[in-house]
């Protein structure tokens, strides 16, 4: 059914068609999570009523509470049946959480991370099949904490993501490294909001994308410097390379500021590969195609290198290189 999803926090005129995304999402008639076996000692249950900011609601969902008490958590979901999932991460120590998706169906996930005096690295890797759907919502509330989300969004013909981070104490930091790939007629819609609520908070968003074929993407990223967020730093960088002349890229990098002494900046670049860079590489003997591939791989590496698992890094790079 066609739905209007992922609305922006501050509206602009509807003529620009970026406030929301209209997209077909298959109805999930009967939800049965029996096939999802979760390895490890986590609190897993089936719960009622799933509501999301993205705009999708369901009657039942699979709930996992991760009270992180060891260094690394790995969750892998083979999404061959519809998955409606809620993960709560509460941590009081430094740790890394890896969540990986494979399979060909629809994955709808909410990940709520509530941190107090912790450092967390959350790696979310979407390696779903081409016809799959990946719909994901991140909610992060940080007090005296540092969090990095590395989000690799490659598989699936529809990729919707929504992110809300509240930096609720000074000296908290939130970083997002996001890599997406659009092929065929993929639809990608990203809607991110970072609220810098307190003094001396930091946030950096780096979003790298490659669009091929007839894929379409909308990036909506908002940094909101609230009153009282003095001496905070918020940087947002979005770089989208169009590999096909039929691909389409929209972006809305919003910056809202109600505080005097902040350092806020955003940069967006879209289009073809920088010609000076191409010239430089060609002057070092690489052909045009080799130079383009090197630059694309450099952009991919920037994000992929944030994930510590070398094997996983190579798996991601191989999948992308096969598609471009």
């Amino acid at each position: 059914m066609e739905k209007i999803l992922n609305s922006t926090p501050v509206r602009t005129t509807n003529k620009f068609k970026i406030n929301d995304i209209k997209v077909d999402i298959p109805d999930i008639e009967f939800i049965n999570f029996d096939d999802y076996k979760i390895d490890g000692n986590y609190n897993v249950s089936i719960k009622d009523k799933f509501n999301s900011r993205i705009g999708l609601d369901y009657n039942k969902y699979l709930n996992i509470d991760l009270d992180v008490n060891k260094d690394n958590i790995n969750l892998e979901f083979n999404v061959n049946k519809p998955l409606v999932l809620n993960i709560n991460i509460n941590s009081s120590i430094d740790s890394t959480v890896n969540i990986k998706y494979i399979g060909n169906n629809i994955a709808i996930t909410k990940i709520n991370t509530s941190l107090n005096n912790s450092n967390i690295k959350l790696n979310v890797i979407n390696l779903l099949d081409k016809e799959a759907y990946n719909i994901i919502e991140f909610t992060n509330t940080l007090v005296d904490s540092n969090m990095t989300t590395n989000f690799i969004d490659i598989g699936g013909k529809v990729k919707l993501s929504n992110l809300l981070t509240d930096l609720n104490s000074s000296n908290s930091t939130y970083n997002l490294n996001n890599l997406y790939l659009g092929i065929n007629e993929d639809i990608i819609d990203m809607n991110y909001l970072i609220n810098l609520n307190k003094p001396n908070t930091n946030s950096e968003l780096v979003v790298e994308g490659l669009l091929n074929d007839k894929s379409k993407k909308s990036f909506k990223g908002t940094l909101d410097f609230k009153e009282g967020s003095s001496d905070s730093i918020g940087h947002e960088n979005e770089n989208c390379i169009l590999l096909s002349d039929e691909a389409k890229s929209k972006s809305l990098p919003m910056m809202l500021c109600h505080e005097e002494s902040v350092d806020g900046a955003h940069g967006v670049s879209t289009g073809k590969i920088d010609e000076e860079k191409l010239f430089y590489l060609m002057s070092r003997g690489l052909s045009k195609d080799e130079s383009i591939r090197l630059i694309l791989n450099a952009n991919i590496n920037k994000i992929v290198n944030c994930i510590d698992d070398v094997n996983l890094q190579q798996e991601i790079i191989d999948i992308i290189n096969k598609e471009i």
Partner: peptide
Amino acid sequence: MRTNEIAKLGIFMSFQTPEEIPGITLAHF
């Protein structure tokens, strides 16, 4: 001639403002 073919003939330029390539190490390059 294409730039890379000229480079292969043995002409090298030291650039006034050399490019930065985040994501590729110097060794790899």
